[in-house]
Design a protein around this nucleic acid. Sequence first.
RNA 1: GCGUCCGUAGCUCAGCUGGAUAGAGCAUCUGCCUUCUAAGCAGAGGGUCGCGCGUUCGAAUCGCGCCGGGCGUACCA
Length: 569
Amino acid sequence: MLKDLFLKETENAVNLAIKNNTLGQMTEYTKGSLSVEKPKNINFGDFAINVSSLAKSAKIAPPQIANAICDNLDKDKYGVNIVGGFINFKVNKEILCNIVDEIFKKGENYGKPENVKTEKINLEYVSANPTGPFHIGHGRWAAMGSALANVLKFYGHDVYQEFYINDAGSQIQKLGNSLLIRLKQEKGENIDFPEDEIERKNYYPGEYLIPVAKKFLLEHEYTEDIKILSDFAKKEMERLQRELLENFRVHFDKFYSELDLHTSGKVETSYKKLQESGKLYEKEGAIWFKSSEYGDDEDRVIKKADGSNTYLTADIAYHKDKMDRGFDRLINIWGADHHGYVARVKASLEALGYDSTKLEILLGQLVNLVINGEQTRMGKRKNMITLDDLIEEVGVDATRFWMCMRDINNTLDFDIELAKKSTDENPVFYVQYAHARACSILRNAINDRIDAHSGETVKAPLSQDEFDNLVKNFDKSILDDEVENAKKLILKLEEFKSTIINSAENRTVYSICRYVQELAADFHSFYNATRVITDNKQSTLARLSLVYAVKSVIALGLNILGVSAPEKM
RNA sequence: GCGUCCGUAGCUCAGCUGGAUAGAGCAUCUGCCUUCUAAGCAGAGGGUCGCGCGUUCGAAUCGCGCCGGGCGUACCA
């Protein structure tokens, strides 16, 4: 990366200065005390390093430090100038040409970091109950999770995506009970869900089970056997969920069934292991886990007084199983409403002898739907908007982009009206438009076209062969006279590399959304200032190569986000 | 009460491990289509970085305490 280049050069210069005794009382440079940033004022340079942080150990004023360091730098090569405690660098033509060259040479691998430590990662997200349709919040985890998986893979990690199905426990019973009511209604019986709020909690009164009831009656004899009914409803819900996920471009390597965890005996095994660890005890008829010994606020029940397991019991077995499968790291995306579970799951892993720091839990804040400028709470109301509804309304691209756009720590306002708009108010379209615009220019380069205003046929400046040759045998020397004019744009293309690294290392998908918006902005700006296809063939070729590079990098970014990069709009 | 996330321009948000006059998009105002997509561009105005104290040469950024909001606080999942 460009930043690293300047950092390394400066660090070498610092070490030399120390050796020459020109850095005051400084006797040793500790790596990491200098960092590269962007100058506030573009006239200073393209990159800057602030040396004020060395003032403490050197015991001399920052400008003096900067001067001493600069004595050991190739000032001409790097366009070095000093302002106060800042050493500013200017990139030269050669560097700029190399950036574009790298994009051509590496193609789809441009931006893939080298020499980074990669891990075998299990990424678990969505993990909804198979008891109903996804809500908007699931959409956020689905979009962010799959985009995170993409960026982690691009970084070089080995990522295994997993969806934990909560298909055991009392909610499945509830599902069966609810289907029975719908069945009876289908048969004309005058029956409904209880009005009483507490009793109503034993049912899923949403209308989504009506079509399930119809389907059941088409395929099966009427029955009141709750086991059969809940099984049927569960399978149907799972089928619909998976269909939606595929449609939403979310692909899991495994759907892990909680039920399997029970039938395979894994829940029992992990329970016994916990017991052996001596961290279980009985109180008031229930079995408790001493999670408070590992930083949890209080101990947790693991087996209820009636002998049944709690949700946690299976979850412990699940996480133990993930550990046993040999992953270097487990990443979970959970809704913020589950944050209370973090401490207890980590506690259980510690008690079972695992390193709980391998488990990273990303807590996502919830989504507010904004309709006509008004926030609506997502609740289990009758007229609740499901993820299906949302995607149908605004489309997969816009939904995915909006869901990824904000830091996971922030609540997300999803403005339906805005996301639907095909105008500059909508960042998704802004970025896609930049891509389409670039594609359009590339098309015009090799196709004769009819001028919209004069109506005359304009001959294509390049043949297909010439264009193919430009891409396949890219020669960076054609850029020599063009790169200064496109400096901002080219430096932005270079930033893709650090964006990927930051995004993957900090698990921040939104930084890719931001990057792609910034790149689009710089491209639109370039487009307006610089005519690409002109009578000058040399400059046309050079500028086309820039357009091609931009198109490629926007596509790379959008691809990671799971958003399409249209060639025409 | 306790835990946790958040509080930066009218609105939605960036601001990386503290550093040069606090940034972007939308909205508002002013310009730009005889030329490759104006779904675009150029420019302008707009901020006590919730409040206070502390650490520091230096704080939107770190610590503590308030204030305001979201979420959680089950032998539910």
